[in-house]
């Protein structure tokens, strides 16, 4: 479990980052900073480690339950350690009309993983519309956006993931 522990350095980064974020909110509304604060924690630790979520709640003057509730509501937050590469493939209607279902299958075969399964290296998942409907199909790899995808493009993107 040691990767889940908050080091003193992690905590210091979280504290100073949250102090900056709080300047954007009314003084009596600290808990409003929950999303940016959790995002910061995820940037530091790679995912929302329970100890860190508790720390966020404490720094924002709210309960760990409130923080956990938010952490589990949004799909970009990971309350369990995700694979090194989170690959989000849009399969909504406009993308499906441009080959997204075939693309997902192609990637499942190529990566040897089924969509929805979190592995050590890859976490391939289906996601909803990513605002590339006119430049479909598309996907995001660790939040980096790729659109107008073809087999050749997908191959070259996946090759770089080591």
């Amino acid at each position: 479990m040691h990767h889940a522990a908050m080091t003193p350095d992690d905590t210091a980064r979280l504290e100073s980052g949250i102090a900056k974020i709080l300047q954007r909110y009314p003084a009596d509304r600290k808990s409003a900073a929950m999303l940016p604060a959790l995002r910061l924690l995820q940037e530091i630790k790679g995912w929302l480690v329970p100890e860190g979520v508790k720390k966020v709640a404490q720094l924002l003057g709210t309960t760990p339950e409130r923080a956990h509730e938010v952490a589990t509501f949004y799909i970009m937050f990971f309350t369990e350690k995700p694979g090194r590469y989170v690959i989000d493939v849009c399969t909504n209607l406009p993308c499906a009309l441009r080959g997204a279902e075939g693309m997902l299958k192609y990637m499942e075969t190529k990566l040897g993983t089924l969509a929805g399964t979190n592995g050590d290296k890859y976490f391939l998942r289906e996601t909803e519309c990513l605002a590339s409907c006119g430049t479909a199909p598309c996907m995001q790899v660790n939040e980096d956006h790729h659109e107008n995808l073809t087999k050749a493009k997908v191959d070259s993107i996946l090759e770089k993931l080591q």
């Binding site: 409003a32 900073a33 999303l35 924002l60 409130r66 509730e69 949004y74 937050f77 519309c129």
Partner: peptide
């Protein structure tokens, strides 16, 4: 935001801005 279509609905957006689901 952090990935939730519903947060485009204006009152869900306000809830999210207030740091909630």
């Amino acid at each position: 935001g952090a990935g939730a279509y519903i947060c485009g609905e204006e009152t869900a957006l306000l809830e999210s801005l207030e740091g909630k689901k």
